[in-house]
Design a protein around this nucleic acid. Structure first.
Length: 554
RNA sequence: GCCCUUGUAGCUCAGUGGAUAGAGCAGUGGUUUCCUAAACCAUGUGUCGGAGGUUCGACUCCUCUCAAGGGCGCCA
């Protein structure tokens, strides 16, 4: 671990140690799980790192928080080479002022670790499965899948950066009612070529893509018109599924998303995994029968109502196969953590699935669902409809044709997955030239230009000469990289990365305007070249997490 | 009716229980004989939806309430 995170951890332990000594002297019981929290004050005047332990514990010690803070500082002694001074301030904050030496040491670390800076190498690598998009294969992926795609992809990258062994996964819903409906819709369109009066299923898929698939198949295989309706529907369904999955693969590839595993739902049914899941629940006493159906006793697990696992007609529900699927992830493939990115319209499914895991004897916290609010798409003042059944959804392919890839990947990650996102297609295109992603990329391109144009002078770089406000600000910002990564992972929020990288670009542009890299002091020129190089490494690394390109010129 | 999410500047959004609530866009004024002006610098803006409560301290936690979106199927 490097960066400010490491320093905060160190200080937290030191304060904790001192507190335990004081507590013993006073005969006070310190809460067993107490951890001194370190935070960054908003105002630089209040130091680089701040600790509020004295205020939190004032009651426990029955002391004035300021007095307690001063006692803690006394016991800490005059810190060390990296902590310049420690002060108590306000109602009882303990403020640490970090020395320039520490920041300059970090600069050297960045130059040494390059784009690996900010990574955390754990003692033992944990495994994580990130499942996202998992769009219905009855049609092409649409704009509604776009946001989940980049959220999941970036989260997977972030966990990899933290040293986890990551599997990126797509769950293919190639089984069940919607597949049947898919086949029937295709069959009807096929029949309508020769018989325009042929009835179309009431809840069928009415998209253009269905008609096109049917027409293409009819052209290539005219003999299949002899098949009975049911057989034809099955044949067409298999054909359409194959074509759609290939297309899905292709479009997501262009979106910069590459999966390690495509997991077909039908496998769970073929292998008997669904039946085994139900039997496991049954043997754990979480199942009963009613009205000819098999039910999960969800109400025993703090749910509103029980859920059907196997219908009266003997066909398992989606819920049953989802239980089997997650047992596969957590119990058979032994992932330490399974993360799913779902649209908020599935929130009702989260709790009962976690509870089903619990009923199977699995810690439900090993399953984490990131609920993403759906994107509300407008074009100008007009709402763009997104119903796949009616066939008027904007396809992902169409969307990517309009908005540059880098802008899309960045844009969808500028806000918390939980916030509702209103996206104006007209604006997305219009603002693409003033989009924050270009601001960040421009910083990278500028650095590349400098590194290319400014010659390194003879002699060593003297980092001691980096005294401008913006120079120190740049180093300070870079040291918070690992914090941004950790927060993104813990909160399942990729916007922590876009915010970090934007702030870094911002400080860099200020530095660029305040300081000339090429100047008449060789030791300073070299130091600034090194500083630029370090910023380049961090920008490149963060953009890589986002799946956004880092252009050398713009 | 019940459940989830959201509500912060004109707009889009940040904001670990912490110190004077911040950015971008939009507006106004300035900066380029010099490494990319897609940049920088300066400048105005707030009943943090509303009302209570918890405490040393609340935009942040709790209760109620208003508004927007979503979910409550032997669909997936």
């Amino acid at each position: 671990m490097s960066g400010k995170l490491a320093l905060e951890d160190y200080l937290s332990q030191k304060v904790g140690h001192v507190l335990r000594i004081i507590a013993e002297e006073d005969g006070v019981d310190l809460p067993a799980d107490f951890r001194a929290v370190m935070e960054t004050p908003k105002d630089e005047k209040n130091g680089d790192i701040s600790c509020n332990a004295a205020m939190q514990l004032a009651k426990v010690f029955r002391a004035n928080p300021r007095t307690l803070a001063e006692r803690i500082i006394e016991n800490l002694g005059i810190a060390d080479e990296y902590v310049e001074r420690i002060e108590t301030a306000g109602p009882g904050f303990i403020n640490f002022y970090i020395s320039r030496e520490w920041y300059l040491k970090e600069l050297k670390t960045i130059l040494d670790e390059k784009t690996d800076y900010g990574s955390i190498v754990p003692e033992k690598a944990k495994t994580i499965d990130v499942e996202y998009v998992s769009a219905n294969p009855t049609g092409p992926p649409h704009i509604g899948n776009a946001r989940g795609g980049v959220i999941g992809d970036v989260l997977a990258n972030v966990y990899a950066k933290l040293g986890w062994k990551v599997t990126k996964e797509f769950y293919l819903n190639d089984y069940g009612n919607q597949i049947k409906k898919f086949g029937e819709s295709l069959m009807a369109r096929f029949r309508q070529i020769s018989d325009p009066e042929f009835p179309f299923p009431e809840d069928g898929y009415r998209g253009k893509d269905i008609t096109e698939l049917a027409e293409k198949f009819a052209g290539d295989h005219p003999e299949t018109s002899e098949l009975k309706d049911e057989e034809l529907a099955d044949t067409l369904s298999a054909y359409g599924l194959k074509a759609n999955v290939a297309n899905m693969h292709d479009v997501l590839d262009r979106y910069g998303i590459h999966y390690d595993v495509w997991f077909p739902e039908s496998d769970l049914h073929k292998s008997g995994a669904v039946d085994r899941a139900v039997e496991l629940l049954r043997s754990n006493g979480a199942v009963y029968e009613k009205d000819g159906a098999v039910w999960f006793k969800a109400t025993d697990y703090d749910c509103d109502k029980d859920e059907v696992l196997i219908r009266a007609n003997g066909i398992p529900t989606y819920f049953a196969s989802d239980i089997a699927y997650h047992l596969n992830k957590l119990s058979e493939r032994h992932f330490d953590l399974a993360v799913n990115v779902w649209g908020a319209d599935h929130h009702g499914h989260v709790h009962r699935l976690k509870m089903a895991m619990k009923a199977c004897g699995i810690d439900p916290d090993r399953l984490q669902v990131v609920l993403m609010q759906l994107v509300h798409l407008v074009r100008g003042s007009e709402t763009v409809k997104m119903s796949k059944r009616r066939g008027d959804a904007v396809s992902l392919e169409e969307f990517l044709g309009e908005v540059p890839l880098d802008a899309v990947r960045y844009l969808f990650n500028t806000t918390n997955p939980n916030s509702h996102l209103v996206l104006d297609l007209d604006m997305a295109i219009k603002t693409s030239l003033e989009n924050p992603v270009f601001y960040v990329q421009y910083a990278h391109a500028r650095i590349c230009s400098i590194l290319c144009n400014v010659k390194r002078e003879d002699g060593n770089a003297d980092y001691g000469k980096l005294t401008d406000r913006t120079e120190l600000a740049l180093i300070k910002q870079m040291t918070t990289y690992s914090t941004a990564i950790l927060n993104a992972a813990e909160e399942f929020d990729p916007s922590k990365i876009t915010k970090f990288v934007y702030d870094l670009a911002n400080v860099f542009h200020s530095f660029y305007n305040a300081c000339r890299v090429a100047n008449d002091d060789p030791a300073l020129t070299n130091a600034r070249l090194d500083l630029c190089m370090a910023v380049r490494f961090v920008l490149e690394s963060a953009l890589c997490l986002l799946g956004v390109s880092a252009p050398e010129e713009m």
